[in-house]
Amino acid sequence: MVAEQNVLTVNIVTPDGLVYDHHASLVVVKTTTGDMGIMANHEPVVAPLVIGEVRVRRVDSPGHENMIAVNGGFMEMSNNVCSIVADSAERARDIDLTRAEAARKRAERRIEDAKSHRDQDELQRAQVALQRAINRIHVRKSGLGG
C-alpha cells in the first residue's frame, strides 16, 4: 500500500507504562543538539532528549498536532517506529494547568532560597524543576487538543 510507506508509529514510554501510541506522518523532538524532525523511512537514529515538547502530526487527523511534555530521555527511530523512552511524559490534554503553575511558583521560590544560601546543588535541582513546570505549562497552552 503506497500510503503505508509514508507512515511511522510513534510510541512514548515511561517507567509507568505506555503514554502515547499513534501512527504519524511527522514527529518533532527536542534533542541535546536542537530540534529533530522524523518522517517515515528515516534512517535509524538514536538521540538523547532534553526537557521539551514532542510534536506528533497524526495521519488520522491532518492539520492537527498532538503535543506531549517530555522530561528528558532518548528517542530511537528504526523500521518506521519512533520510540521515545522518557522519565516522565504527559499529553497536553492530561496536564493540570493549576498544578503546573503551582510547581512553577514553588521552583521559583526554591531558586531564590538556593541563591540566598549559596546552595549550588539545590539551585540546579530547582532550575530543572522550573524547566519541567514551564514545559508542562507551554505544552498545555499550545496543545489543548493533544
Rank of each mutant, 00 (worst) to 15 (best):
M1Q: 09
M1P: 13
V2D: 12
A3R: 04
E4D: 14
E4R: 09
N6H: 07
V10T: 07
N11D: 13
N11P: 04
T14K: 01
T14H: 07
P15C: 02
P15E: 07
G17A: 09
G17E: 10
Y20N: 09
Y20C: 10
D21L: 11
D21M: 02
H22W: 02
H23Q: 14
A24D: 08
V27Q: 07
V27C: 10
V27R: 05
V28L: 05
T32Q: 12
T33M: 10
T33L: 12
T33H: 11
G34F: 03
G34K: 03
D35R: 03
M36C: 09
I38G: 06
A40D: 03
A40M: 04
A40W: 08
P44E: 05
P44I: 01
V46L: 15
V46N: 10
V50D: 12
I51P: 02
I51L: 00
R57W: 06
R57A: 14
D60N: 10
S61K: 12
P62E: 07
G63I: 10
N66W: 08
M67G: 15
I68L: 13
I68G: 11
A69C: 08
V70C: 13
V70H: 00
N71G: 11
G72F: 06
G72A: 07
G73H: 05
F74R: 04
F74P: 02
M75V: 15
M77C: 08
S78G: 04
N79Y: 06
N80F: 03
N80E: 01
V81T: 13
C82K: 07
C82R: 10
I84P: 03
I84R: 08
V85C: 06
D87C: 01
S88H: 09
A89K: 05
E90R: 05
R91E: 11
R91C: 11
R91G: 12
A92L: 07
R93K: 11
D94V: 06
I95H: 04
I95A: 04
D96K: 02
T98V: 15
T98C: 02
A102G: 09
A102D: 13
A102Q: 14
R104K: 15
R104M: 15
R104I: 12
R106K: 14
E108F: 04
E108N: 08
E108W: 09
R109Y: 09
R109T: 11
R109E: 15
R109P: 03
R110I: 00
I111R: 06
I111D: 10
A114S: 08
K115D: 05
K115A: 02
K115E: 14
H117V: 00
R118T: 10
D119M: 01
D119L: 01
D121F: 03
L123F: 02
L123W: 00
A126D: 04
V128W: 01
A129L: 05
A129V: 08
L130M: 08
Q131I: 00
Q131R: 06
Q131T: 04
R132D: 10
R132I: 15
A133R: 07
I134M: 14
I134C: 07
I134K: 05
I134H: 00
N135K: 07
R136E: 10
I137L: 06
V139R: 08
R140Q: 15
R140K: 15
K141N: 14
K141M: 14
G143T: 13
G143D: 11
L144W: 12
L144D: 08
L144Y: 10
L144Q: 13
L144H: 12
L144M: 14
G145I: 13
G146N: 13
